[in-house]
Amino acid sequence: MPKKRRLPALIKDMGSCLFKKPVTQEYPFIKVQAPEGYRGRQIFHPEKCISCGLCERDCPAKAIELIEVSGRRLPHFYLDRCIFCYQCAEACPREAIEFSTNFELSTTEKAEMVVTPEEFMSKQKSTSDEEEKSVD
């Protein structure tokens, strides 16, 4: 049953808000860290890949394509189709695909919308979660 109407209950709450710090996070001037396990950009380990093609077949968004790179067929990930569902990482029998917490993927270069194996073949094979990427 509706209770008796009283004066606005928010008066005290509002007043106390004046003395609190605003809850706004001043992104992008202050960097925000995504928690571990966040499904961000893929990290690929070319040395583990056996070119089975299971990732390409299982991707719900058809965002992976196996293209020949220096003699082997390796997956290329199209980030503009990817839905970041993690299915490729699950399907891979050799755990060659790993996800990072990198979510800052906006760019003005079309070339950066594809994750290529060359990127990982030239770098040192590290197992860190963070991928340093400059955002345009």
Binding site: P2, K3, K4, R5, R6, L7, P8, A9, L10, D13
Partner: peptide, 14 residues
Amino acid sequence: KFYKTVFEEDATLR
């Protein structure tokens, strides 16, 4: 719980 009291009692909302 606080919002429950607000929705129950606030005169203008009601």
